Amino acid sequence: MNFSEMTDRIAHGQGFIAALDQSGGSTPKALTGYGVEQAAWTSDEEMFALIHAMRSRIITSPCFGGGKVIGAILFERTMDGEIGGIPVPEALIARGVVPFLKIDKGLEPERDGVQVMKPIRDLEALLTRAKALGVFGTKARSVIHLADPDGIAAIVDQQMAVAQQVLAGGLVPILEPEVNVRSAERGEADRLLRDALLNALDAMQGGARVMLKLSLPETANLFKPLVDHPRVLRVVALSGGFSRREACAELARNDGIIASFSRALLEDLRDGMSDDAFDAALGEAIDDIHAASTAAAKAG
């Protein structure tokens, strides 16, 4: 796939984006959920080798290349790795899966009810390397805990500034201002975020488009104006701590949004499974998430 073909696949593909981007801080929890206890590694290199083996097993599973997964978000080490001697982005593209890269480096401490991103050092060099490897876009995450207008404005300002750097580097940015779905102020935070994003999108210059990765809103279809905005290539949803069943039910209530799940995709996978059992469990998850994504996409 060339860039134009990848753009069309992401804009119109009937499927969802897999989030395989657990980073250093979240990798131990992901491995534990996969059935690999912390005693199995004694260094970061061993830990990352184990998570790479898990991701390789997912990407090479027959059901992952069946057309229902249209994109995958990678951690930097995964992007730089290989599967069967082939660079991971190239292996994904060969399976019809568009590669994205997680570029944020973690979160600052909470202030004004939000956590903005830490500075992303050497971003230009990272974008150049990613593009050379065939990566289509990026993802950067920040978190909203409270319905604080100043905090949410700061989140959106920072997300848009990073997005402009990504666009200048020739890639498509996914903005991920996650609303904590356990927040007592979730509904109002959703509304403040929607309005701040709409204002920022309206102010964009030129013809570039971005993507949005959002928590599923408390009020169904609250984000429909974002789905329909001409500056938005696609809106995808994170599972936000919901189980797969819960996340799929929430997703199906929101027209035009597709999934970009991580934990909800991986929750039934275990290291000790036989290949047949692993592929069956992954295939069931993919089928569930694809069904919820395409039902919502058709309604949109």
Rank of each mutant, 00 (worst) to 15 (best):
P119D: 14
D112H: 12
S56M: 12
K102R: 14
A91L: 07
K131S: 08
E82D: 02
A91K: 09
G134A: 13
P62A: 09
L126A: 07
L101C: 03
R95C: 06
C63P: 00
G151L: 09
D104V: 06
A72M: 03
L123M: 10
D150H: 15
S56K: 15
K105S: 15
H145L: 15
L107M: 14
F136V: 05
F100L: 13
L74Y: 03
G113M: 04
G65H: 02
A72D: 04
R77P: 02
I144L: 02
P109D: 13
K102N: 11
D104K: 11
V156E: 11
D104W: 14
T78F: 05
K118G: 06
R121M: 07
G151C: 11
G137Q: 04
I103H: 06
K105E: 15
D112M: 08
V135L: 02
P149C: 08
L123C: 04
L74F: 05
A147K: 08
K131H: 08
G113E: 04
I120P: 06
K105N: 14
P87G: 05
F100R: 08
T78S: 07
I152A: 08
I103A: 10
C63Q: 05
G81Y: 01
P87T: 11
V143W: 12
D112C: 09
L92W: 07
T60C: 09
G84F: 08
E108M: 12
R141P: 00
G66K: 02
I155R: 13
K118T: 14
D112F: 12
M79H: 03
S61C: 03
G71M: 05
V69A: 02
R57T: 14
G151A: 09
L107P: 03
G81W: 01
D148C: 13
D150F: 15
L92Y: 03
A130W: 11
E110K: 13
I155K: 13
L126S: 09
I59N: 01
P119N: 08
F100M: 09
V143G: 00
R57G: 00
L126M: 07
I83A: 11
K68D: 05
L101E: 07
I155L: 15
V98G: 01
T60H: 03
A53N: 05
L74H: 03
M54K: 01
F136K: 05
D112K: 07
G85P: 06
V135E: 02
A125Q: 09
R141H: 12
L146A: 10
K118Q: 12
T60R: 04
G134E: 12
L127A: 05
L107R: 10
H145Y: 15
R77Q: 10
P149Q: 13
I86P: 03
V143R: 04
T138P: 00
I120M: 14
S61T: 02
T128Q: 12
A94G: 13
R57C: 03
A140R: 04
F64C: 00
K102V: 11
A132Y: 04
G71Y: 00
K131Q: 11
D80R: 06
P99F: 15
G81D: 06
V88A: 10
C63K: 01
R141Y: 15
G96F: 06
V135M: 03
P119C: 13
G134C: 11
I103S: 11
A147L: 09
K139L: 08
I59M: 01
V98S: 06
G137D: 05
E108L: 13
M117S: 02
V98W: 10
R57V: 15
A72F: 04
R129F: 02
I152M: 10
L101Q: 07
V98P: 01
L133Y: 15
K68R: 02
V88N: 08
